[in-house]
Write a protein that binds this DNA or RNA. Structure first.
Lengths: 224, 224
DNA sequence: CGCCCATTTGAAAATAATCAATGGAAGTGG
DNA sequence: CCACTTCCATTGATTATTTTCAAATGGGCG
């Protein structure tokens, strides 16, 4: 298999600064298997033995947790370049499902751990990645605990924009997904987006793509 | 210095299962300095170089983040046995202050990292601790994003009870602290506690100590 | 091309925040 | 050691934001 999946190796930090790409993890390339998923197809279920790590190549994946009474929480959206499962223990504590048609690499966790044991740099990269995850988690707790609906949406859009690269933001997930990620209802998400649209802060190109027309206005809404 | 601080070495997981004590970290004992803090005295401020790790021996510490408009978020309450700073990068991303008179051990971070570099088991313990922190963070995101006020309070009490050991729960922090930790106002916290008291689910021994009279009732409120 | 499902929008209801006043505990200084 | 002062907690009334319920619109996929 050519170097297709050796090229980009982004950190999986969501909010906050991106850590330096863990170059030492490049040692992992070549030990992975490519797999494909259809929309809504599960990658794994909660409680499954955490035998693998994954990296998203194309498409998007969500991690989610469903409560006894049906409420659903989405822990993360994983886009191209993001890792899944690095922070699992014995088994995965949540489910992972494809949001849209997706392609991933699957790494044997055992092999990675073995590499980490004999090559301290890999172990350190893992720690670095986990640090950045924790930083992201802290920021998201702040968001979920203390921000208004509009602030959450603004933060979400800025975040995706920072990850996606240019101005066009791709939103492969549904409004319900976004709501379950931000602790809001679908309706509230929709209303917030509509308001941003009517104020001219964002423009919409189809349901699943928006552009930030006025970044300053968005940033003014989100003040950490 | 005697083995006073080699005795208990609890994981710092907040919610969720406790990981096995990281025995290999016992190698750290003997390299720490004991320090004391008065009520509200800062341990460090956001942006300070993260030169040290700390372990709480006695008392309690909070980590907090103040937004531009004055809203305050408390990231964690650290009680006896808990570690502070393990997940920091170059500098601390938040402030840490004593909630009540506290005693801690201060470890040189450099020394710990050096130990970790030559002794993979220590590195692995760090990863384990961070894994459990991430698991706790995930659970708290779920809480902050999808739980009602009463559910948050129930979870908080059960959590403290699990950490504290026996039935008596010590609440050294103010109601405002609890609110800032759970994403609620002081008044909402107070009302929820009053309701639990009037229902006979908890009893109160002074402002800063409660007992769970009916654990089943609390657990019924908190359903993950 | 047509059906189905996600989205949008509106109106009503609920939860928690805010505003406000009282009561009580802890800590200070004489 | 006691009294004073200050801060914290409690409780009540009101307001605001978000959820819930409901209907209509529109896009995307087969």
């Amino acid at each position: 298999m050519p170097a297709t999946h050796a090229v980009t190796f982004r950190s999986t930090a969501y909010h906050g600064q991106r850590v330096a790409p863990a170059e030492s993890l490049a040692a992992l390339d070549g030990v992975g298997v490519v797999i494909g998923l259809r929309r809504d197809e599960p990658l794994f279920r909660p409680g499954d033995t955490a035998e693998f790590y994954f990296k998203v190549l194309k498409g998007a994946v969500r991690s989610c947790h469903v409560l006894a009474d049906g409420r659903r929480h989405i822990g993360d959206f994983f886009m191209a370049g993001d890792f899944i499962g690095l922070d699992a223990g014995e088994s995965y504590p949540f489910a992972a499902e494809a949001i849209a048609k997706a392609m991933l690499i699957r790494y044997s966790r055992q092999k990675v751990e073995a590499l980490a044991a004999e090559e301290p740099r890999i172990g350190r990269s893992l720690v670095e990645i986990m640090r950045s995850r924790l930083a992201a988690a802290r920021e998201r707790m702040l968001l979920l605990g203390h921000m208004t609906a509009m602030e959450r949406i603004a933060s979400f859009l800025l975040d995706l924009s920072a990850r996606g690269g240019d101005g066009r933001i791709c939103l492969p997930m549904t409004r319900t997904d976004i709501g379950d990620y931000l602790g809001l209802t679908m309706e509230t998400v929709s209303r917030a987006l509509s308001q941003l649209k009517s104020e001219g802060t964002i423009t919409q190109q189809g349901l699943h793509e928006v552009t930030i027309a006025n970044p300053a206005a968005l940033m003014a809404l989100f003040k950490p």
